Structures are given as C-alpha cells and as structure tokens.
Amino acid sequence: MSALITQIKDGMKEAMRAKQKVRLATIRMLLAQIKQVEVDERKELTDTDVLAILDKMIKQRRDSISQFESAGRQELADNEKAEIEALQEFMPQALSEAEIAAMITSAIAESGAETMRDMGKVMAILKPQMQGRADMGAVSGQVKAQLN
C-alpha cells in the first residue's frame, strides 16, 4: 500500500475521532474513488496515481464552485470549498514560481526542445515531477512562452 493511501486512512480516523462530518465524508469519497480505480485497472495504485486522483477531484470541485456561485447557490459553493480544503491536506507542498521556471528550463534543455512541436516531449518530462504540485494548465502556458 502506498504511503499516501496510509496517510489518507489516518486522516479518516482523525476526522472520525474529531467528529468532522464534511472532512470525513470527503475522505471517504476519496478512498472510494481510489478503490474504484484499483478495481477498474486491476492494480495497486502508487502515490503518483493517487495524486492524479486527488488533482482531478480538486479540479472538479473548483468547477462546481464557479457553477454554484454563478447560480447563486453560495451554501453549495461553501460545501465544495470545505471539500477542497480536506483534499488539499493530502497534496504535496506546491511549487513556487521560481521552482516551476527552473524545472521548465531544465526540461527544455533535457529534451532538446526548440519549437512548439517539441512541447509534448517537455510536458512528458514535467508532468511526473509536478503532478499535484502545480497547475499543469499554467505550466503548459509557460512552456509555450519559452518555446516561442
């Protein structure tokens, strides 16, 4: 079992003891999603796989928040924000702008990328290093800017 899954299960136990209903429900939802992927793919997930699931769940909640706020449903948006907080507890420390820029420069040099056609090579190097630690959409924009 990955260290991150163990950490998530410990977080669930803490939430039970502290009677934190929203956090507990969110962690249970996360564990259910992890189990679903394990069953579907018939493999034990690594920390990287779990981070990808966490990243996806956080992104879904951010999308929901914007939709709820535009529909005037603030109580639902607040619930989604609480779920994001519970999920982010298990994400690694976010990278700073300087760290991201340095990693992009290094990946471009490592892949030998010169034009936009080489962007896939650069992103293939960066994605495993930055998974869950940076917004890959923003990173993609920075890579485009450096390759142009």
Rank of each mutant, 00 (worst) to 15 (best):
M12V: 09
M123T: 08
A101I: 05
R17V: 05
F68Y: 15
R23I: 02
S66R: 15
A32V: 01
G72T: 07
G141L: 12
T48P: 01
M57V: 04
A86F: 04
V50K: 02
R73F: 09
K81G: 09
A71W: 07
S66K: 14
Q36T: 06
A102H: 06
Q36S: 11
S96C: 03
S96K: 01
L51I: 06
G137M: 07
M57W: 04
A113R: 04
M91P: 01
E44S: 08
Q146Y: 04
L45W: 01
D47M: 10
Q146K: 15
F90A: 00
A102I: 04
Q60K: 07
V139N: 09
A98C: 02
I125W: 04
K43M: 00
I34E: 01
A3H: 07
V143D: 07
D135Y: 01
A109Q: 15
I34A: 02
I84S: 04
T46Y: 00
E80G: 00
D55S: 15
T6H: 11
E99Y: 05
T105N: 14
V139W: 12
V139G: 13
T115A: 08
M57N: 03
K144P: 03
T46P: 00
A101E: 15
A3K: 15
Q142E: 14
M119R: 10
K59V: 03
K43Y: 00
S2N: 07
A94F: 08
A109P: 02
I104Q: 12
A101K: 14
K121Q: 05
N79R: 15
Q67T: 12
M29L: 08
G72N: 08
E14T: 06
N79V: 09
E14D: 09
K81A: 15
Q88D: 09
I84C: 09
A138C: 02
A124W: 01
S2H: 06
D47W: 13
L31M: 10
D55V: 04
Q60A: 11
S111W: 09
I8E: 08
V122F: 09
T105I: 10
D10N: 12
D55R: 14
A102F: 05
R61D: 01
K144M: 12
A32K: 03
G141H: 06
E97C: 00
E38M: 00
K59T: 06
L30D: 00
S64T: 07
S66H: 13
S140A: 07
M91T: 05
A98G: 03
E75F: 03
A18R: 13
A82R: 13
V122Y: 07
E85C: 02
A77K: 09
A134N: 09
R62E: 13
V139I: 15
P128K: 08
